[in-house]
Design a protein around this nucleic acid. Structure first.
Lengths: 150, 150
DNA sequence: GTGATTGCAAATCTTTTGCACTAAA
DNA sequence: TTTAGTGCAAAAGATTTGCAATCAC
């Protein structure tokens, strides 16, 4: 039977099915806002965002969503493993759509974050964690300074 | 001549001379508050503090100082190289009295920070920083999770 | 329908700032 | 004196929360 082209009601009506499914798998109802934010994050190719920047981007694209909902969604996505939080600046949270193992360059002067490919840093044997704890996640942050001219 | 005991006016009157000198060298007037905070930080053996915790500690010891001054002092000390800021939690600044090269364990659940001795992690060749930047400081944070019983 | 989700505004928390007052040199 | 430093309270961000309205199922 002919079920592979755009004529199929299913594809017509659910153009974002993969994202909807990812939300569902994460236990999150695919609401209008969550779906729109997830699309911005996961399809739009953007990498390092703040709640503020994602909110602005959403509004620019005509998505009606409140800043509070952006915060909630970012945390829900992070908990679901769709995002990773990058802590480089006290007083501002960055989120990374790249959840694979990798580390970051960060320039405090400009606020820019960029990825260091996972294989560009190989951590040697880690020290033993203190008793009663286990290692969760290892972050390496290389802080950069703008090079003066000359 | 006899200048090695407590009789010397100099030692009598300037029991905190080393700290005063460190402040002076940093271009900071050794005011009552700064001196008291510097003593708490540098002599008291404490390692990882927040503005809030240092303020409480100061008040407990009977040092009259405002929270704003604690913030100011912490940043001045950091700029002067007497402290190092540790960024592990968005929305809270930690300061470390250990300014030698080392990294940190951090438990988000409890907020505890502890040092990893500098030589327990050897970073291999770092990747080249992007054009126009140079490497400032490298932070390695090992995030811990409390181990469930059993 | 019913329970989860949202929006808004208010609340919270950490940190910074403005300015009159105080203290170091 | 004179200038830097301090305290207070207010301001400024960033993030969170409470609750009525709204939406997904």
């Amino acid at each position: 039977m002919d079920n592979m082209t755009a004529r199929t009601p299913n594809t017509q009506k659910r153009p974002f099915a993969p994202i909807i499914d990812r939300l569902r798998e994460a236990g999150l109802r695919p609401t209008r806002q969550r779906l729109a934010l997830a699309r911005l994050l996961l399809e739009h190719g953007q990498r390092h965002i703040t709640a503020e920047s994602l909110h602005e981007e959403a509004l620019r694209e005509g998505i009606k969503v409140s800043l509070a909902t952006v915060y909630n969604s970012l945390h829900q996505f992070t908990e679901a493993g769709l995002l990773h939080e990058v802590v480089v600046d006290p007083g501002k949270s960055y989120f990374d759509t790249n959840t694979s193992e990798h580390h970051h360059f960060y320039c405090p002067e400009t606020g820019e974050i960029s990825d260091i490919p996972g294989n560009a840093i190989t951590l040697p044997e880690l020290p033993e964690p203190p008793d009663g704890y286990r290692v969760g996640h290892v972050d390496v942050i290389i802080r950069l300074q703008k090079q003066g001219p000359n």
